[in-house]
Amino acid sequence: MSSTTVELEFYMVDLNLISSYAYDLPEELIAQSPAEKRDQSRLLVFNRNTGERTHAHFFNLLEYLQPNDCLVVNRTKVVPARLRGVRDQTGGKWEGLFLGIDSEQTWEIIGKTRGKLQPGETITVVNDDGSNRIQLKLIARKDEGRWQVRPLQSEEDPRTHWEILDAIGSVPLPPYIQHGHAQAEDRERYQTVYANQPGAAAAPTAGLHFTPELLEQCRQKGVTIAEVTLHVGLGTFRPIGVEKLDEHTMHAEWCEVQEETVQQIQHCRENNGRVIAVGTTTVRTLETASQSGTLQPWQGESTLFIRPGFKFHAVDVLITNFHLPHSTLLVMLSAFAGYEEIMETYRIAVEERYRFFSYGDAMLIL
């Protein structure tokens, strides 16, 4: 096929249709386990200015960083959000996912079971080895299959919400990894080394490749490490349900940019450094806080949907994993680096046998 034909095919693509964001992926390229060591993952480097693509490893990242660059990471911490139990009234099996804590200090969850759940009903959740259990009372049904629930603690039970989850929950692996069944080692590997703010139902996976040693080497090179928080939520597990992107309602995720991070990025800009976002969650957070045109401290729920035509204000360089077809994340990459360029890069990644999705390899977009 000639290059002219390829260009014509791309020209005819409607970037407002989710069906355009598809590619062929052999099932064996979906990573089922992480690399033996975090920074041994492969790294596909794409330079938007030259069009050049280079094959490297994540430990080569320092070669592409410059003094005065600012590496921005998402410090959210994955909680053991996968819950399994039984309905006390019927004895039926129940599976759920913890989504967050609301202003009333009750939990928001989504679950599945046979039959129809009713407000007032209780579910006994038990951990994998049966050593811990707690009852959840269903308070109210919300939209999109979500429920407001309250963990029933005795007065003698001093545990926090996070301690309860740690006792009864398991790692919420995506369904394409080990069919969602976590192993003991996933508690450590499905978590970034800098995670310290509990609240995520999924990992910000681009950060999984960093080791403490690599971060220290970045600092020694003169690269600033800045932090934001975005608690990855329900939207990660839900595909786009409409064909036209302009009809898609983006899921809300809580995020925060603190004053210190704003100052670090301003200092980077003043010294001709680049803002390097580690992951699409970091992009979404920084661009949410920059909707006025200038990055400002920000806290709240973001519903920002980044798609082709979006004007980026905060991010210069992106480190990211390889994402699912028909996903908002693949749409975001197309907005950042160009649709044709991203689809060709993904084609090359498949051809070169890169490993895909959460436990897979990484891409650096310069």
Rank of each mutant, 00 (worst) to 15 (best):
R189L: 05
Q197E: 12
A200R: 00
G180F: 03
Q191Y: 01
A202F: 07
L208P: 01
Q197K: 15
G180Q: 04
N196Q: 15
T192K: 00
Q191P: 01
H181E: 14
A201Y: 02
Y194P: 00
E188F: 11
T205M: 09
T205C: 14
Q183W: 06
N196V: 08
A184N: 12
P198D: 08
Q197T: 11
T211V: 14
E185L: 13
Y190V: 06
T192H: 00
A201G: 05
E185V: 13
A200N: 05
A182T: 07
E188S: 14
N196E: 10
E185Y: 15
Y194Q: 00
A184F: 14
G180W: 04
V193Y: 03
T205P: 06
P204S: 11
A203K: 04
G199L: 00
N196C: 14
A206Y: 01
G207K: 02
P204C: 09
F210Q: 02
Y194V: 01
Q197F: 08
A206H: 05
A195V: 01
D186V: 03
E185R: 14
Q191W: 03
P204G: 04
H181Q: 12
A206Q: 04
A200C: 15
A184I: 12
N196I: 07
P198F: 06
D186K: 02
A202M: 10
E188W: 09
